[in-house]
């Protein structure tokens, strides 16, 4: 994972559910690019057409609530989203994102659509350079950092399988 990223904001509210991120009728593939074509189709129809590589999703509380569909973070990765910043995350969405390598930041940062954000994972600071405000966020728990550093759960599992001599 890069230690610093910067990107343009897509702002969402509270309780953004996984049906909004990727509606269930498109859950017939696991391919990030195919899923990205329908990301936020009902909630923000312009998203799929206008999203750019490196954009950042910012939301309020409980982002990613609802279904366990890993298709939700996959769709965001497919859309080129570099990070999701929210006041809090729903737990399965959080796990899925960590496991497949979508960076998440739990922070309360004031932002609107189109603002520019800079995130420094080392110092734990997220800056809204458009508005000139910033917020701090806690470091990732050690175990999860180990998982992320291993390259996500897939690589971690491969190592475990090797170690177990399976």
């Amino acid at each position: 994972m890069r230690s610093k990223i910067a990107g343009r904001v897509w702002k969402f509210g509270t309780n953004v559910d996984t049906d909004q991120i990727i509606p269930a009728e498109y859950l017939v593939t696991g391919d990030p690019a195919e899923l990205a074509a329908h990301a936020f189709e009902k909630a923000r129809p312009e998203f799929a057409g206008e999203v750019r590589e490196g954009d950042i999703v910012v939301a309020e509380e409980n982002f990613g609530c609802g279904s366990s569909r890993e298709h939700a973070p996959r769709a965001l990765i497919g859309a080129g989203i570099s990070c999701v910043v929210a006041k809090s995350f729903a737990r399965i969405f959080y796990r899925n994102s960590i496991n497949i390598g979508l960076p998440l930041v739990e922070a309360a940062i004031v932002a609107d659509d189109g603002d520019n954000l800079e995130i420094d994972f080392k110092s734990g600071i997220v800056k809204n350079t458009t508005k000139g405000v910033e917020a701090s966020f806690p470091p990732t728990p050690a175990f999860l950092q180990k998982l992320i550093d291993a390259g996500g759960l897939v690589e971690y599992t491969k190592t475990q399988i090797k170690n177990m001599g399976m």
């Binding site: 366990s68 998982l147 996500g152």
Partner: peptide, 20 residues
């Protein structure tokens, strides 16, 4: 508890998973 597809795959191989 509900999990994602990648962790389900990992558990199918290892029989264990991380939990907070």
């Amino acid at each position: 508890t509900g999990v994602g597809s990648t962790e389900a795959a990992s558990a199918m191989a290892l029989g264990k998973l991380w939990f907070k």
